[in-house]
């Protein structure tokens, strides 16, 4: 019989707000995403020298993961990462496309090109938190609590991971939304589809 798992902590970044376990950490209404995420990064005293080189999707995923993992301060090294979104890396794909459209001015940027896959953001999180764990990135039409639940349970129950960082990180033009949560054998919120959906919609 499978052990009961829990949602240890969760974070959101949406609508100009960074929150952890439902409490505001940073809020700035009047900013576009690039300025908002830069100020949030500085305000939250985050330390990662490559942050400003990341694309928008990676900045979003990285900061949502960082506030959560720093809070939990887990010694667990085997934290799998299972993320999902709708727009894949479309925002960066468009920027890359713009740089190669004009044959007479064909200068693709290596720094942009390396982010033309959505799972690169998992790499950024893994580097910062020294994780050498299982990871996956799924593309769905919308947030899919059932799929993430089954996947996280499977990773823990088959001992592929001790904990699982799950969630949704979507960036398309100026629309952005991150919801991450950590599944663990400890916590006070039961890990089930209903609770995941409830926290997502907070």
């Amino acid at each position: 019989m499978s052990k009961q798992n829990y949602i240890r902590a969760f974070s959101h970044i949406k609508n100009h707000v960074v929150s952890l376990n439902g409490e505001y950490l940073y809020h700035d209404e009047a900013l576009d995403f690039s300025e908002f995420i830069k100020r949030a990064y500085k305000s939250l005293d985050t330390s990662y020298s490559k942050f400003f080189k990341m694309d928008n999707l990676s900045k979003l995923a990285f900061l949502a993961a960082d506030v959560l993992l720093e809070e939990v301060n887990s010694q667990e090294e085997n934290i799998a990462i299972v993320l999902s979104n709708r727009a894949s890396s479309l925002d960066t794909d468009r920027r890359h496309q713009n740089s190669i459209e004009d044959e007479a001015n064909y200068y693709p940027s290596p720094a942009i090109f390396v982010y033309t896959l959505p799972n690169i953001c998992i790499g950024e999180i893994s580097i910062k938190h020294k994780l050498l764990s299982e990871n996956s990135f799924f593309i769905f039409d919308h947030f899919n609590a059932a799929y993430l639940f089954d996947y996280a349970e499977s990773l823990i129950n088959t001992k592929k991971a001790g904990k699982v960082l799950c969630g949704w990180v979507d960036f398309d033009e100026e629309n952005y939304e991150a919801f991450l949560y950590l599944v663990s054998d400890k916590g006070n919120r039961i890990h089930n589809k209903e609770e995941i959906t409830r926290l997502y919609t907070l």
């Binding site: 020298s49 080189k53 290596p110 720094a111």
Partner: peptide, 17 residues
Amino acid sequence: LGLDSIDALELIVMLDK
């Protein structure tokens, strides 16, 4: 400055462009 391998590629593009 702590530049990395991707930065080196960016500098190569900059020299060309």
